[in-house]
């Protein structure tokens, strides 16, 4: 019998680590990977809670999150590619043309 706190705690920690990574890393692709980390944390939370509450809605939601994550990956990496074609760099510090 797994205490309910476990998946919740692990999910929270994964989310926090992912958030830290998004803020700290300057390589666009690594940032993207950290985002996936955050999503995993959320998924874990969903699964854990639905396991405890015996609801099917949790896993269903997780399924949808995965679908969205896949779509996001496709589009996001396409964007990274396009930007790289223009600026020859994925360094986030170089992207400040939205300034002002």
């Amino acid at each position: 019998m797994i205490p309910i706190g476990f998946p919740l705690a692990v999910g929270a920690i994964l989310f926090a680590i992912g958030a830290f990574g998004v803020l700290v890393r300057r390589n666009a692709i690594v940032v993207f990977m950290c985002i996936e980390l955050m999503l995993n944390g959320v998924n874990l939370t969903f699964i854990g809670l639905s396991d405890r509450l015996r609801l099917i809605d949790g896993p269903v939601f997780v399924l949808f999150i995965m679908a969205v994550a896949a779509a996001e990956a496709a589009v996001g990496l396409a964007i990274v590619l396009s930007v790289y074609r223009r600026k020859q760099s994925v360094h986030l510090g170089d992207f400040d043309s939205m300034k002002g």
Partner: peptide, 8 residues
Amino acid sequence: KLQTGRIY
């Protein structure tokens, strides 16, 4: 000034 253009 808030719109620095920096993602961070």
